[in-house]
């Protein structure tokens, strides 16, 4: 082996000591993206940790919690006034306190999603170009009205009272629905949620897709993170955005190939352990009086919200 060592490997890189010089490297968009991906694993870990906490809400059976989630999401979308929606938001806040969740972190996530998928998405619909009504926030004045195909553009463009009401309703609905989902997600271990879905007769194919997706996300993120580290270990200097895009483009193919191979292996492992097409889970525990009482309370409170 020694005789085979190439001459360049015996040469020392450089005996010169390091001479500091200026020239900062900016964090590339890839690095920032990978940091965010790493957050996915962290949030998965946080979900696992918070779901194992002990509180009255945590102790409720996953089936009751899922029914509660479905029932309340329906109530949230049935209400047409903003006041009952705020009452529901207050009730969810109370439940997060009972569950002992970190409310600040919890509402940071909820409001972020509510802002993007509720407020920002719906905001253009508040313009009088889309929803007719009394303009309360004027934005632009044109010299005259314009008619274009089926559209009518009035001389005064602005937000209407009706439009703003609709945006507020949609935002609070999104906030309420997201906070309900997060409340159940952060207080129930993932395998329990899957088991509850199975008990509630959700089709096996759907459960399998959810389970595999959940696992796939973690495997995918870990693969991408490790590949990024491998690249980092052999990269010197700044990578410009064009090169970074090129690298990401080329790597998407290789990550796809790797994950496809991994997927085939996992499927073989499933077949090897007798998987046919039906998902079999071990027997769920029986509902306790505590679960039934909690279910009853949710039902009564839900009924109250519906009546309001």
């Amino acid at each position: 082996m020694k005789s085979k060592i190439p001459a360049f490997l015996i040469e020392r890189t450089s005996v010169q000591p390091y001479v500091p010089s200026k020239g900062r490297l900016k964090k590339s968009f890839i690095e920032k993206g990978i940091d965010h991906l790493a957050e996915v694993i962290k949030s998965g870990y946080v979900q696992w940790e918070t779901s194992l906490m002990d509180s009255i809400f945590h102790r409720i059976d996953a089936r009751i919690k899922l029914l509660f989630l479905l029932f309340f999401v329906v109530i949230v979308s049935l209400k047409h006034q903003i006041v009952p929606e705020f009452y529901i938001a207050g009730f969810i806040f109370l439940l997060t306190l009972i569950a002992g969740l970190n409310t600040l972190q919890f509402y940071k996530k909820v409001l972020f999603l509510g802002f993007f998928f509720g407020f920002l998405v719906a905001l253009p619909s508040a313009l009088n170009v889309i929803s007719r009504g009394e303009v309360v926030v004027p934005i632009l004045h044109l010299s005259r009205d314009y008619n274009f195909w089926v559209y009518h553009i009035p001389a005064e463009i602005g937000m209407t009272r009706e439009g703003l009401n609709a945006v507020s309703m949609l935002t609070i609905r999104v906030v309420n629905s997201v906070s309900l989902s997060f409340l159940v997600l952060f207080t129930t271990p993932f395998p329990e949620i899957i088991k509850a879905l199975k008990v509630m007769r959700v089709p096996d194919s759907f459960i399998m897709i959810i389970t595999l997706c959940y696992k796939y996300i973690f495997i995918f993120v870990k693969t991408v993170e490790d590949m990024h580290l491998a690249k980092k270990s052999r990269t010197v200097g700044q990578v410009n955005n064009a090169e970074a895009r090129q690298w990401v483009g080329a790597r998407i193919g290789s990550v796809f190939k790797k994950t496809q191979l991994r997927c085939e292996e996992i499927f073989k492992a499933m077949l090897g352990r007798g998987f046919s097409t039906e998902i079999r889970l071990y027997q769920s525990r029986k509902l306790s009086s505590h679960d039934i009482a909690a279910g009853g309370i949710f039902l009564v409170i839900g009924g109250l919200f519906l009546w309001m």
Binding site: T13, Y18, V19, P20, S21, K22, G23, R24, L25, T223, D226, M227, L229, A230, S233, R234, T235, V236, G237, Q238, K258
Partner: peptide, 22 residues
């Protein structure tokens, strides 16, 4: 984050990962 130090360090320290696949 310093360009010259990164080059200095990376050309002198190589890392072979446990999982060759990644």
């Amino acid at each position: 984050k310093n360009r010259s130090f990164l080059k200095y360090f990376r050309e002198r320290v190589g890392y072979v990962f446990q999982d060759s696949d990644v």
